[in-house]
């Protein structure tokens, strides 16, 4: 069962439209991750009465569009630091708005951004509760909400 799927979709659309000047042309809300290439991973950890993480994963071509809009530069002028910063802030905005909808008092970490790897391994001891498989101008990206699970007992 997905959790807060519609709310995450609305928040993501709001960030895409008002800050990035982009449209989301398709969204599928569920708990299964569509197989796709995602070069960049943004992650904010959520702690407090509800623990987990929000992940934004996208290919380089989409992140270049996002960062171009934010920095007012052509894609070929962007530095790797600017790409990281743009994804970090995008993840922070989606995660920050989501935090207000979670039960109880919660706190958000500063965003962490990585290039490459499997986002499901970025948050240990967590289960996927909601995933949005989205596209912008036909380019796919993923928004995922993971909930912390108890650590296994030490032997």
């Amino acid at each position: 069962m997905q959790f807060l799927g519609e709310e995450i979709r609305q928040t993501t659309e709001s960030v895409w439209n008002s800050i990035l000047g982009l449209c989301i042309d398709a969204t599928e809300i569920g708990v299964e991750h569509a197989a796709r290439t995602e070069d960049w991973i943004g992650c904010v950890q959520i702690a407090g009465e509800w623990g987990g993480a929000l992940v934004v994963a996208c290919p380089t071509v989409l992140l270049e569009r996002i960062a171009s809009g934010m920095f007012g530069k052509q894609a070929n002028e962007l530095t790797p630091d600017e790409l990281r910063d743009a994804l970090g802030e995008t993840t922070n905005m989606v995660g920050g708005n989501l935090k207000a909808l979670l039960p109880g008092v919660c706190f958000l970490s500063l965003p962490a951004v990585s290039h490459g790897g499997d986002w499901k391994k970025k948050v240990p001891y967590a289960r996927l509760v909601t995933i949005l498989n989205c596209t912008t101008d036909g380019v796919p990206f993923t928004i995922a909400l993971l909930e912390k699970t108890p650590r296994p007992a030490q032997a």
């Binding site: 800050i19 960062a67 934010m70 920095f71 007012g72 630091d81 600017e82 910063d85 743009a86 970090g88 802030e89 922070n92 500063l110």
Partner: peptide, 13 residues
Amino acid sequence: DDSAAMRNIISRS
């Protein structure tokens, strides 16, 4: 703001 992207967006406006 610690985000250069956000500083840029606000500053442009």
